[in-house]
């Protein structure tokens, strides 16, 4: 599903990512953790084609990001959905229109589109709000609209960038439950967060921790952290692997810190 190898990215002289590598199999749930400025958003942006991948290699849902042409980006984004902290819903359009947007750009026939939109809205408790302008909804409801828009297309991969950042603790847990619900249906999910409480609620999830652009820790859920590296190199599909970078590429300043698998 996802394979990231030696990916680095810089904004001018600042290195946002340094030699990041990990893999993710279909149907897995990965927490991308780390403090603000650790490189989580940059990594996600690379994964959905918002930033060009210039150093390293990555494959997402069959798309080779290091060779991605501009005209292929819309196709990538039809396989990779994104949810943001600031919701990014169209305030002047109804809940229905916001959810339907993702299907309209795929030219789905109106009859099928209507069925899908209503089904997803029902699953997220939005069926009574479909006609309401999205700008009139609460923060939690707007985030559910954003999630509905992301999952209505049955994406191969769902990326969520601090999706609970603007929500209170209860709503954040409710959002996590929604992600867990869709994960059980087989959706592969990467959720970037610095909320440790949220991470502890999903004991079987994989975790990759970034600090200053480097992978400094990764776990092997339900197993011995030490076995992680072996598993990562042994089996590509079953690998829940995050190999911490031990040395930055020649053009990346400074060596990376030693891996700390248990530090999350």
């Amino acid at each position: 599903m996802l394979n990231v190898r030696h990916v680095s990215h810089n904004f001018g002289s600042h290195w946002a990512l340094k030699n990041v590598s990990f893999e993710l199999a279909k149907g897995e749930f990965l927490f991308l953790s780390g403090p603000s400025g650790a490189g989580k958003t940059t990594l996600l942006r690379l994964l959905y084609g918002s930033l060009p991948l210039e150093r390293g290699k990555a494959t997402v849902a069959g798309f080779r990001l290091h060779d991605l042409r501009r005209r292929e980006i819309p196709l990538l984004r039809r396989q990779v959905s994104v949810v943001f902290q600031d919701f990014k819903v169209l305030a002047h359009r109804s809940v229905y229109d916001n959810i339907a947007l993702a299907l309209e750009v795929r030219f789905m026939p109106r009859r099928h589109l209507d069925r899908r939109v209503r089904a997803v809205a029902r699953s997220l408790g939005l069926e009574r709000r479909l006609a309401a302008p999205s700008g009139e909804l609460s923060g939690g409801e707007q985030q559910r609209v954003a999630i509905a828009r992301a999952i209505v297309v049955n994406p191969q991969l769902l990326l969520a960038d601090e999706p609970t950042g603007n929500l209170d603790a209860d709503l954040a847990l409710r959002m996590l439950e929604i992600f867990q619900q869709f994960h059980t249906f087989g959706t592969t999910i990467i959720l970037a967060t610095h909320n440790r409480d949220l991470i502890s609620r999903q004991p079987d999830a994989r975790i990759v921790r970034l600090e200053e652009g480097q992978v400094v820790a990764a776990n092997w859920p339900g197993g011995d952290p030490a076995s992680f590296r072996t598993a990562a190199t042994a089996a590509a599909t079953a690998t829940s692997g995050a190999t911490a970078s031990k040395a930055a590429p020649a053009d990346v300043p400074g060596p990376g810190p030693e891996p700390e698998e248990d530090r999350l």
């Binding site: 980006i73 819309p74 990538l76 994104v82 819903v89 169209l90 947007l101 993702a102 750009v105």
Partner: peptide, 16 residues
């Protein structure tokens, strides 16, 4: 621009 950004995010082509 938010609308344009969202449309890009959901996979809309430029002409759309």
């Amino acid at each position: 621009r938010t609308e344009i950004e969202i449309l890009h995010l959901v996979g809309a082509r430029d002409w759309y």
